[in-house]
Design a protein around this nucleic acid. Sequence first.
DNA 1: CGAGAAAATGAAAGCGTATTCTATCGAAGG
DNA 2: CCTTCGATAGAATACGCTTTCATTTTCTCG
Lengths: 340, 340
Amino acid sequence: MSASRVTIKDVAKLAQVSIATVSNVINGTGRVSPETQRKVEQAIGQLDFAPSASARNLKDKKSSLIAVVVPLLEKGRLQDNPFYWHLVRGIEESARGVKLHVILVGIGPDETFSFVREQHLDGLIFVGAFARTELVESMLRLGVPCVFMDSLVDDPSFYQVALDDELGGYIGTKHLLSLGHERIALLTGVLLEGGVNYCRWQGYRRALEEAGVPYRPELVYEEPTSSLGGYRAASRIGAKTGGITAVFALSDMAAIGLVKGLHDLGIVVPRDISVVGFDDDERARYCIPALTTVRQDIVEKGRTAVRLLTAQLEREPLAERRVTLGVELVPRQSTAPPSR
Amino acid sequence: MSASRVTIKDVAKLAQVSIATVSNVINGTGRVSPETQRKVEQAIGQLDFAPSASARNLKDKKSSLIAVVVPLLEKGRLQDNPFYWHLVRGIEESARGVKLHVILVGIGPDETFSFVREQHLDGLIFVGAFARTELVESMLRLGVPCVFMDSLVDDPSFYQVALDDELGGYIGTKHLLSLGHERIALLTGVLLEGGVNYCRWQGYRRALEEAGVPYRPELVYEEPTSSLGGYRAASRIGAKTGGITAVFALSDMAAIGLVKGLHDLGIVVPRDISVVGFDDDERARYCIPALTTVRQDIVEKGRTAVRLLTAQLEREPLAERRVTLGVELVPRQSTAPPSR
DNA sequence: CGAGAAAATGAAAGCGTATTCTATCGAAGG
DNA sequence: CCTTCGATAGAATACGCTTTCATTTTCTCG
């Protein structure tokens, strides 16, 4: 079978030095003469030695591991929004740059976070609205660096990366208003106070108010954030009775489903109804018609989270613990002035 | 600051037993009287003790960690195909079920795999065509269980999960043939011998051959597997000169870009040109027109990979080390008989 | 050339767990 | 009542590394 693991001892023996010296060479600590260094390095190369992370972690109480914690849907399923891939790859790319590995973990409503302590995780990135406040608090109490993304918390002592959701809601709505729309429906996921949809909804209201257009609660459609949710909402939104001429969907997924649903009903976008999405998912550009949307840079969001994490790991004081990323309206073909 | 870590010693002291007994209680090993067990469990609960994975790993030379290894694009970027999310979540969901954690790692063309040994990884899932054969071989030599997904290797001793790509290529093409198309273009990513596109291409050829339609190399368009790649191919494919009436795109991403590109050229799908995609990405259903495509279950692919991995970890002999998942044609609205 | 300083190296002690081996205790058997 | 055995509990050790501290070697300069 495979020979037993090569240890620092084997290296020391081969290089005819002590294990402490080998350790020093590896970590660049202490003082080592160039000649010894060379000998050791050669021995390492020859034996193809790789220091055991477990042993090192045991000593240092670190792990070079950070976890991306994503809330689970029903039945232990992870969110199926491919959006998450961009987030995760942004995180992985940055983490790799600072020699951290990323472990992906779905967390259910009644699971324990014991693995965090078991694994000596160096940090956590919580994605999405976390209701499990007791758990989160216990993490913070343990002194494990945490970053919250799109979270509900409003505590300035928390490290957070968020999007200027209110502004996003505002500019999307404003775009439709400036085209001349007044009966603008809002297609949103669940409106949880403090959550992303909630903030966007606030921006929607602000835009309406500024334009002197009355806010009508009956134009707010709360549906699951998915293409299917959007598709299903189409029939209700498209009903002539509402007189709706534009819809602001708070995710591209929902917007795409909506457009499809409207299309299947014979309602043409943007001629009959204008649609604005949110995210600027890659597919938005390739829709027919191409989707006007509010752009956010998800990969950048992931990178920012890692930056906030490493700032904590390295005890860098940060001017602002909460980073709010910008949004941008991307006008395409799914919006047009209302037809008379 | 936070009190120093709770160890098994503290538990032992509180429960007034030895650490060995505590260890036995935790792992269900040895023989422990019910009363002692209760005492220990209470102490664990009281101290909120979580055993150190590092220490355990050091002892056991395990880590309960598996890595999903994804080849990097240029500049350390991870693949941006959201497709990967479904794969990764399939893996995570299954891994969680068997108490394994998933670490995501992008691997570049000249990076070393040292982290695999450093972290004592229990297993690896290689995704995509891996050219780094030396590295892979060194992993196998180390005895680290590996599973290859969509790989180039054709060695039956390797654990692999693949798709019946040849059949996928066949049924997609056959569908178009049966509608009456003859000049069927193939829009593919890079054709690497043994790779997924290559197999699908073989299926395409077989279908043509069976139908007595001559294979024309000039109808094969090798473009990057992306929406942009598809979009760019549109002008060449749509040129009247080719007389192309149908296109089989080997990914939904490319198909969607293609449809958009054709649309922008005033070419209507499926009236002027039929399009078939591959994957059955969620978005395929919500396209306008909804995309006919060859369906594969990516989440299942991830689950299967974990199954193959755990089979190795538990030394279960497996009848077949290579699992080939099926494909299925999903007819939708992007295909129709050719117009005269 | 020798004393003291600086540089290089090595010995040893943990880090927190699993595990083997020994010791103890109570009960069953003679 | 003593022996023997099974059931439990505990002491000791190893896992591979980092790190402090002491020790040895080399260098510098009076």
